[in-house]
Each structure stands twice: as C-alpha cells, then as structure tokens.
C-alpha cells in the first residue's frame, strides 16, 4: 500500500511563557513535530511494513518545516513532499487542506493518515477537510489499523464506544493521540539514511490568505510571581509550599 502521512511543524506548546504585566503569551520559538502527528507517523510505518508498501511524509509550511519531514524519514518514511508556504498557521484550515490535497491527489496513494489536531493552533479540521477535498471517506478517532490483504481493519473509539470498521481503497484515517506516544522514533541510523532520501519541494496551489484574522495570544490568567518547582524532592517541595501557604495566610 502507498501511504501518505501528514505532519505539521508547530511551536512547542510546552515553552509557552506568559508576560505577567501584559498578559500576552509567547513561545520561545522552538519548533517540533506536532505530538499527535508523531503517533500517525509511527502507525503509518507499521502499516507500510505490514503491507510491503511505502510511506511518504507530507508537510505544508515555511522552509524550516522541512525538519519535520526529515524526522519522519529518520523514523522510517521513504520520501517526503514539502508544500512550501509561509504564514499558514493562523489562517483557515480549509485552505491548508486544499493545498495538501492538491499535492497528493495524483500520487496513487491508498491511505492518507493524519493526527487528530495540532498542538499549536489545532483546529481538528485538516484531516476531514483533506478527505472532502479528495472526495473520499474518512475515519476519525482511530486507535489501531491492520491490513488484511487489500482491506483495512480499523479500530476506533467514539466517546468510549469502540467499534471496528473494514474499508478498502482510498481513505483518510485520523489517528487518535495516545498516552504512551509513538512506538517508533527517529533513530541515529535513520538520521543518516534520511539524508539520502528524496524530499520533493512544491509550491502551494493557493495563497494562504483568508477572511479570518487572528489576534495575539493572551493568557487566561496570569500570576505576577509564579513559583514552579520541578525536580525538587517531595519533602523539600512540600516544605516550600507549606511556607508559602503560611506566608499568604492560606492555612486554616
């Protein structure tokens, strides 16, 4: 089977910092593969191996977004497609999905796999919109995929109601995030091999401008002097918290 897996480079949500005077939120600018997409990549490579097929990693984003395609190649994908587009982050998912669809429409793919939603401005839309743009079905909340000949056995979970579906032929599978994270990761050897794997660069089929304009991120609530204890032994952390509670007259 020929499988396309869609990966997005996102700001690392773990690095969000809030300016306590303005309430504005910002990140350090560190970029990573969206955590849910790493799970989709891992599952795509499993499926590729099981069916003797190949996996193509696809991203849409600026020049540096190539890094997440390389991560997927280092995990085991065979090749990549980079749809080059600036400023796609805070627009309208529909436009992103249309441009992604244009890049893969004639690629002879049997299966398209996406994450559930991205870790930055995640809208949870692109997978479904990709399917609509391609005119094919989708299955969301996918827990597990297995191939049985040309048929796919897909396990999903809808609000705690699990079921299994059988599908064949082009379909978008939206892979659920799982607590354990991806089974497969980029390996050192994979990194070396990734250098020799092809990444095709294509221009976006449409401009990313939309009728939506996004405001600056702000915090829900800010604390002027936040204290965060990490990697502090339990007794010491507890002593510091108890002292802080007393200082603020918060003990009974």
């Amino acid at each position: 089977m020929k499988i396309a897996v869609f990966v997005k480079q996102v700001e690392d949500a773990r690095t969000v910092r809030i300016d306590s005077t303005t309430g504005k939120a910002s990140t350090t600018g560190d970029k990573v593969m969206s955590p849910g997409d790493a799970v989709a990549v891992s599952d795509a490579i499993d499926l590729g191996e099981a069916t003797g097929g190949e996996v193509v990693a696809v991203t849409l984003g600026p020049k540096e977004a190539r890094d997440v395609v390389v991560d997927a190649l280092a995990t085991g994908a065979a090749s990549g497609i980079h749809v080059v587009a600036e400023d796609a982050d805070q627009g309208d998912s529909r436009v992103v999905a249309n441009a992604l669809a244009a890049a893969v429409r004639d690629g002879g793919f049997d299966v398209f796999m996406t994450g559930p939603e991205t870790g930055d401005y995640g809208t949870g839309q692109v997978g479904r919109q990709l399917a609509e743009a391609l005119g094919i079905p989708h299955i969301a909340n996918v827990q597990k995929v297995e191939a049985d000949g040309a048929t796919l056995k897909v396990q999903r979970d809808l609000d705690g109601f699990p079921d299994e579906l059988e599908v064949s032929g082009p379909v978008v599978l939206i892979i659920a995030e799982n607590e354990e994270g991806p089974k497969r990761h980029p390996s050192l050897r994979g990194m070396m091999q990734a250098k020799r794997k092809p990444v095709e660069e294509v221009p976006a089929s449409e401009t990313m401008s939309t009728p939506l304009s996004w405001g600056a991120p702000t915090a829900q609530r800010t604390s002027a002097d936040q204290i965060m204890l990490k990697d502090v032994p339990a007794e010491e952390a507890a002593a510091q918290l108890a002292a802080w509670l007393r200082e603020h007259r918060l003990v009974g």
Binding site: R221, S223, Q226, I227, M228, A234, L241, W244
Partner: peptide, 10 residues
C-alpha cells in the same frame, strides 16, 4: 500550571 501561582511537578 499556566494559571497556577504555585506549581509542583511531581
């Protein structure tokens, strides 16, 4: 943690 005045990771 984003809205906490005092947070302990543990």
């Amino acid at each position: 943690f984003q809205m906490a005045d005092f947070g302990i990771v543990g």
